[in-house]
């Protein structure tokens, strides 16, 4: 297939050309996925920390649910959010369907279990180490969660990146609740889906390469900042 070679050339042209339409799409992708990440991070990290330090009846059941939800198919999330936000649904009055906000909600729901489940495991492992010392100092539970989150911050960054990766890569949810509307809700992945359905495989793959390049840039940037901060400040 000559499409591979063409794809790399297309990707190169797209990146060099910095075409306004492409920048708009990339900008929206970042805005939607990063906002979703912040929302899911706020809730997911709190939930993960709470599940890590508390013991109550039914906790095991909740862990199974949260862990299983990591495998939520994006299409299902999209469908559920669509049914909620549809004008025929309970939240239709909000008028959020086919807006970037709807996409943010869908992606946040999609990555929340990933952040909660992975951070729960990480913090629980750290808590196993700190538990006796914290108990000795009589650290209140809320305070314990904050201190554990702070001490696990470098590992948690990887969890957040995993969440961001999943959010930026998924298409099933955003195409349903966003509608892939040009100049409004069209993001990288829905553009790739659209170009694929137009049979323009080289352009679709080229966009895929652009998306991957952005992901690599973000991850490299965060890792570099992380490594510097870790080396210079704290172990």
């Amino acid at each position: 297939m000559q499409d591979f070679g063409a794809a790399f050339l297309t990707a190169f042209d797209l990146l060099i050309g910095a075409d306004a339409a492409l920048l708009e799409i990339i900008g929206l992708s970042l805005r939607v996925s990063i906002t979703a990440l912040l929302a899911a991070g706020l809730i997911g990290l709190s939930l993960g920390a709470a599940l890590a330090v508390t013991r109550f009846p039914g906790r095991g059941f909740i862990l199974v649910i949260v862990n299983s939800m990591m495998g939520l198919p994006p299409v299902v999330v999209g469908l559920v959010v669509y049914m909620l936000l549809s004008n025929a649904g309970p939240l239709g009055f909000l008028g959020l369907l086919y807006t970037p906000e709807a996409m943010i909600i869908a992606q946040a729901i999609l990555i929340l279990p990933i952040i909660a489940a992975l951070s729960r495991q990480l913090i629980e492992d750290l808590h196993a180490e700190y538990a006796e010392q914290f108990r000795s100092f009589c650290v209140p539970t809320g305070r314990m969660m904050v201190e554990l989150l702070w001490d696990a911050r470098y590992s948690l960054l990887t969890v957040m990146l995993a969440g961001l990766g999943r959010a930026m890569a998924e298409v099933g949810a955003v195409i349903i609740v966003g509608g892939n509307i040009n100049h409004l809700t069209r993001v990288m992945t829905t553009t790739i889906a659209l170009e694929t359905s137009k049979g323009d495989l080289a352009l679709a793959l080229g966009l895929g390469i652009v998306l991957l390049s952005i992901a690599i840039a973000i991850n490299a940037g965060v890792m570099a900042l992380n490594a510097t901060a870790k080396r210079q400040a704290y172990a």
């Binding site: 708009e24 900008g27 929206l28 970042l30 805005r31 990063i34 906002t35 912040l38 008028g95 086919y98 807006t99 970037p100 906000e101 509608g179 509307i181 409004l184 965060v222 900042l225 510097t228 901060a229 210079q232 400040a233």
Partner: peptide, 30 residues
Amino acid sequence: LKTLTLGAAAGLILGAAVAVPGTAQADAII
């Protein structure tokens, strides 16, 4: 350096969030 790092990260995120304005226009039809 730590403050700087955090500041830079927060700036990046805010920048990305603000960079692309505009959602649904009131008179736009679907």
